[in-house]
Simulated assay, not measured.
Amino acid sequence: MSAAGGSTSREAARLHAQARRGWWRTVLRWCGINANDRRLEAAAIRQEQGSLGEQQTAALLRRLPAGWTVFHDLAVPGRRFNLDHVLIPPSGTGVIVLDSKKWRRSYQGRPCPTTLVHGRVHCGPQDRHQQIVNFAGYVSGTAAVLGVPAGMLMPVIVVHGSPVAGGGRLDVRVPEWERTVHVLSADRLVSTLAGMPGGRGPVQPAAAALTARVRQTLPQYGSAA
């Protein structure tokens, strides 16, 4: 099993290398006039932050009760996205698709809480709702590839850094998903998952079957087809 954050870490390294490649780019960067390289470096930093968030989530998931199956950094065949984490509870009643976000705790001296503003997710003053919508689409696409009803998948976003309003949990409705997308603070993640129906107890045959289906259908991201 690959480590959490592996694909985002590799993408960050690629972007850094692309920004720094070539003698003329080095001269322009030294002069401070290469805007494209600055954009590449900024994108690399975002990827690095994303990788750090995935690693922090992986560390939290190791605290789940016995019986949980956890996958990191999976590809979805035929789709242009990867999944940060996929979890199967001991009951086998469904699949949790978990996305890690590393958002600002503060910006320019002001706190950046994660809140709902007119039904849209914001981090401080920034509207981040499109990320929620995109993620709902990814989960829907994953259900189709797995060949299971969409209702069997539970989309969860865990936020590191930015404190999440509502006691650390927001339930967000998006048109692209038939239920809610759950947005959790990092400190609520393990207790929420372990406390869900079927989150504790012996591993049921349904869990083993779902685990086998995920292994057979969703390869490690970046592995050979």
Rank of each mutant, 00 (worst) to 15 (best):
L193G: 12
L193A: 10
G53S: 05
W24V: 15
I88Q: 06
H85G: 09
E11L: 00
V76E: 12
A194D: 11
F81C: 00
A194R: 09
T192F: 11
V133H: 09
M154I: 09
E11Q: 00
R10S: 06
A194K: 02
E11C: 00
Q49L: 11
S162Y: 06
L189Y: 06
G5K: 00
V183N: 00
A150G: 05
A75F: 13
A35S: 13
Q18D: 15
S91I: 08
G78L: 15
Q130F: 02
H129A: 14
K101A: 04
R63P: 10
A44I: 04
P125C: 05
Q130M: 11
R110A: 09
G22M: 05
N82D: 14
T142V: 11
S106G: 07
G198P: 08
D73N: 14
P202S: 10
P125T: 06
T114Y: 04
N34G: 04
S223P: 04
P65Y: 10
I88V: 15
I88C: 13
P149H: 06
S100A: 15
T93P: 02
P111S: 09
S2D: 10
L189H: 08
V121I: 07
A3P: 04
G5C: 03
V117E: 07
R79T: 07
G50W: 11
R80V: 03
T57S: 08
L184F: 05
R188Y: 10
G222P: 00
W23H: 07
G92N: 11
D37K: 01
R20K: 14
G22Q: 04
F135A: 09
A144R: 01
V117H: 06
L184N: 03
G94H: 00
L184E: 10
A136N: 03
A19V: 13
A17I: 01
S91A: 15
R79S: 05
L74C: 13
T8Q: 07
Y107G: 06
N34A: 14
V145K: 05
Q49G: 14
P202Y: 04
V172T: 12
R62N: 09
S106C: 09
G53F: 01
G168A: 06
I132A: 03
A209Y: 03
G6H: 02
G198I: 04
R105A: 15
H118Q: 13
D171E: 13
Y221R: 02
V181G: 07
Q55S: 13
I45S: 07
D73F: 02
N36S: 11
H16T: 13
R20N: 12
Q204S: 14
A13Q: 07
Q130P: 02
I45W: 08
I96E: 01
I45Q: 08
M1L: 12
V139S: 02
Q56L: 15
S7M: 00
